[in-house]
Design a binder for these strands. Structure first.
Length: 817
DNA sequence: TAAGGCCCGCTTTTT
DNA sequence: GCGGGCCTTA
């Protein structure tokens, strides 16, 4: 790796590639032949088919480094697009590491959306927007849709709003403007009931029945008035601009001399068009992807984009990265055999020169709870090393589920046995209610015309402003053609909202004006008076009296929002206050509130990962791109995985996507992969039994070891009951199950597992007394009713009686019962 | 207007 | 089994 000094010398030395010092080509040395090819072929269209764990990011970053180091191109002439901020961040870091200096100078390395925001701010006027447009998140989107419906005198339910939003998203993903939507995609919707009509029998004139295309038109018009865009618009507007203004397009075709795209299999039509337009001139485009890992079809991704690449770019150079550096041969063989079941593939065969390792392990359980219990025990055993597997750290272990409701069983179990875990991709920080509320206050202070934000917080905390008062504000605002804040002011001034609510509203409006004034210092030229905001930029202001961090705290305190959560007695309230504190802390990284809001609208993630090694629990979708030494894949039952709904809605296409999901899951594992299923599972409170997943049938026998759960076949009490045997007989009659039983014969009925040393945290000796009031993160408040070693039995006020490990409890003796 | 009870409906999720 | 939304009631 070249040092910073060498880099400097190189920069100054010569523009010729021949003069390159030996050290600077290090980044090429440890590439394998396929990766090397992918990096060397800088010009023209390149498709890099990179299987799971084949070093795709490495090749991609080496390619960028190569472009820069051979001085063919400057950092700001490379367009490198990813899907997630995380991927963008990682790539920036790795390029920086390879270059030996921070890759700060790569302004066009980012997500599709972030790059489009930048571009659209420059050209907003071409689609009738101002360059300071706001970006709506999905919550705003739903609110807007409800508003639109109410303007045609219909109240829509949230579910209908969600549905309408998804229809509009879908149009945008396909890059259709309202007048470009094909007639076949037009739906007639009863806004009131959410019912859908066939066009022929659509009572079009009936009140509240509307064409989805007309609604889309209305929606777009409203966005323009609000000077706002949704996520889909970011792409759609840019495609429109490129298609309508060839001179603008040409400018960027020339500017972005090289284009790189990560996760190409996840692109939707709009993103595809955007890329094709930009690459149209020089065709220096390198797309990296894996058709076998396309798992986002349900949100508009088109596997077709990657399957069609060679047709789109004739003469494209296709290189396959097939050497896998991640998993053992057994794991790879299992993954390959499963994915082989798919018809539409470009075809790749992963191989590795790693040692054999463990076979993929397969185990069936009686029910979901037993599955969770078994996994918990297995993880405990893994920490000390078991069955030839080296001892593992908790952060080397992951549980990947198909649907998030599967997580609860694991969470409950792990809380009970005191196994530290973290849920990845749960409700994200910026999506939490309290964060959204706080952000709405900030938005409203920064831009008082943000009606959606006003609506969100006008009665949060409760100010006695219910439907009626809010309706009055809406009407007044609409009649006067002003924002809701101004409408509210007029309404109060004219005594349209009286009493307690009126007083509280007046306070809110005054507060907003006051806080807005605090975003800047005192006016410098003109002396003073009560003029707070005239929006004219020629007026200068001194430095603000408060930092934006202080201001944020002031807003939350004076608005009564902080107090609102302090007065709330639910178990979540303290956590929410914590989150608010965290939000204010984060402001430290930004110059002012505006900068922060801009950032958050695009980057909705927050890595507040804290201390200590923990087992990761996440969905298969969230696991893409990650790897773990040990992976558990629970819930492999037909209907759950593959998901029934996916198969019902999308047929074979849906099944194939599910199969790719299985492939993604297995290939996350480096050393140990454990697949499991349960015969019975409680779904929505109802017991259901199911057959092992058809994907289990597709696992290659030679690479699978069948484990036997203690208590199921090993003579545990459960299997003694007649009902149980009957259920077994009739549930487990799939080909996979039969084969599994046959294999069990091979391996012997049951393999007694070595006894477990459950790792107990020695510092966690219970120090609670009977009857003591305690608090638990998940279960809330409760009273101690029993103590056993480090486990404490607690009768929770809300959650019932549970045994939990003492270190998850906090004493709350100061609080009376 | 707000609070409490009841019913419905329910994958996957990034920007 | 749980949360959100709708309805009723005080």
């Amino acid at each position: 790796m070249s040092s910073f000094d060498e880099m400097d010398a190189f920069e100054g030395a010569s523009l010729s590639a021949r003069a390159m010092p030996a050290a600077s080509v290090d980044y090429l040395k440890d590439l394998n032949p396929a990766q090397r090819e992918a990096v060397d072929r800088l010009d023209g269209p390149v498709l890099m088919l990179a299987g799971a764990g084949t070093g795709k990011t490495k090749a991609l970053t080496a390619r960028i480094t190569h472009l820069l180091k051979t001085h063919r191109v400057r950092e700001n002439e490379i367009l490198a697009v990813t899907f997630t901020n995380k991927a963008a961040r990682e790539m920036k870091e790795r390029v920086g590491r390879m270059l030996g200096r921070p890759a700060e100078g790569m302004p066009w390395l980012g997500t599709f959306h972030a790059i489009c925001v930048k571009l659209l701010r420059r050209h907003a006027e071409l689609v009738g927007l101002k360059s300071n447009f706001t970006i709506l998140d999905t919550d705003d989107q739903k609110r807007l849709i409800k508003q639109l419906a109410s303007s045609v005198d219909v109240e829509v339910r949230t579910s209908t709003a969600r549905w309408l939003a998804s229809i509009i998203d879908n149009y945008k993903n396909n890059s259709w403007l309202p007048d470009q939507v094909p007639a076949s995609k037009e739906l007639w919707i009863d806004l009131e009931t959410g019912a859908e009509f066939e066009e022929l029998d659509a009572p079009k004139k009936r009140k509240g029945v509307m064409s989805s295309i007309d609604f889309y038109k209305l929606y777009q018009a409203r966005l323009r008035v609000l000077n706002a865009v949704d996520f889909g618009d970011l792409l759609l507007h840019m495609v429109t601009i490129f298609q309508t203004y060839p001179d603008v397009l040409e400018q960027y075709q020339r500017w972005f001399r090289y284009i790189l795209v990560d996760e190409y299999q996840d692109t939707n039509v709009a993103q595809y068009l955007w890329l094709r337009l930009l690459a149209g001139g020089h065709k220096n485009i390198c797309c990296v992807g894996d058709d076998d890992q396309s798992i986002y079809g349900w949100r508009g991704a088109e596997v077709g984009n990657i399957l069609r690449f060679e047709k789109d770019f004739p003469g494209a150079f296709v290189v396959r990265l097939e050497q896998n550096y991640r998993s053992t041969p057994h794991i790879l063989a299992a993954a390959s055999n499963v994915i082989r079941g798919n018809e539409n593939r470009l075809g790749k065969e992963l191989w590795t020169d790693r040692e054999e390792g463990e076979k993929v392990r397969l185990i069936g359980h009686w029910d979901g709870e037993e599955e969770a219990r078994w996994v918990g025990e297995e993880i405990d055993a893994m920490q000390v090393g078991t069955r030839g597997v080296r001892p593992m750290n908790l952060d080397e272990i992951a549980i990947l589920v198909r649907a998030s409701h599967q997580m609860r069983a694991f969470e409950d179990r792990f809380l009970t046995i005191g196994l530290p875990y973290k849920v990845i991709g749960g409700p994200r920080f910026y999506e939490r209610m309290e964060i959204r509320d706080a952000m709405a206050y900030f938005r409203l202070v920064v831009s008082p015309e943000d009606d959606l934000a006003f609506e969100r917080i006008v009665n949060t905390p409760k100010r006695g402003l219910g439907d009626k008062a809010q309706q009055t504000i809406q009407v007044v605002a609409r009649e006067n053609g002003v924002s809701l804040v101004d409408g509210a002011r007029i309404a109060v001034d004219n005594g349209l909202i009286k009493g307690k609510g009126g007083k509280a509203l007046r306070e809110l409006i005054d507060g907003l004006a006051r806080w807005n004034g605090m975003t800047r210092g005192p006016r410098i030229e003109v002396d003073d008076d009560s003029v707070i905001d005239d929006g004219v930029s020629t007026i200068r202001y001194g430095a603000p009296e408060h930092t934006h961090i202080e201001l944020a705290q002031i807003i939350l305190d004076e608005s009564g929002y902080t107090a609102h959560w302090q007065n709330e007695k639910t178990p979540e309230a303290p956590g929410r206050l914590e989150n608010l504190k965290e939000l204010v802390n984060q402001l430290d990284n930004f110059e002012n509130l505006q900068g922060f809001l801009e950032h958050v609208s695009l980057v909705m993630d927050n890595e507040q990962d804290s201390d200590g090694a923990k087992v990761s629990i996440m969905t298969l979708h969230a696991a893409k791109g990650l790897e773990f030494p040990a992976v558990f894949l629970p819930g492999w039952e037909d209907g759950l995985f593959p998901s029934q709904r996916s198969m019902d809605e999308s047929g074979l296409k849906g099944l194939e996507e599910e199969r790719r999901l299985a492939y993604v899951g297995i290939t996350r594992a480096e050393e140990v992969c454990t697949i499991s299923f349960a015969a019975n599972r409680r779904v929505f409170g109802q017991w259901q039994n199911s057959m092992p997943s058809r994907f289990i049938d597709e696992l290659p026998e030679d690479h699978v070891e069948v484990l036997t759960a203690t208590g199921l076949y090993g003579g545990g009490q459960q299997s003694a009951s007649i009902e149980t045997r009957a259920a077994e007989a009739n549930v487990y009659n799939s080909p996979g199950w039969k084969r599994m039983q046959a294999r069990q014969g091979q391996y012997g009925m049951s393999q007694p597992r070595e006894s477990r040393n459950t790792v107990i945290d020695a510092t966690a000796i219970a120090s609670f007394t009977l009857g003591e009031r305690v608090f638990h993160q998940k279960f809330g408040y409760g009273a101690v009713i029993g103590i056993e070693g480090d486990k404490v039995e607690v009768e929770f006020e809300k959650a019932g009686t549970k045994k939990v490990v003492s270190r998850f409890l906090t004493a709350k003796d100061d609080v009376p019962f």
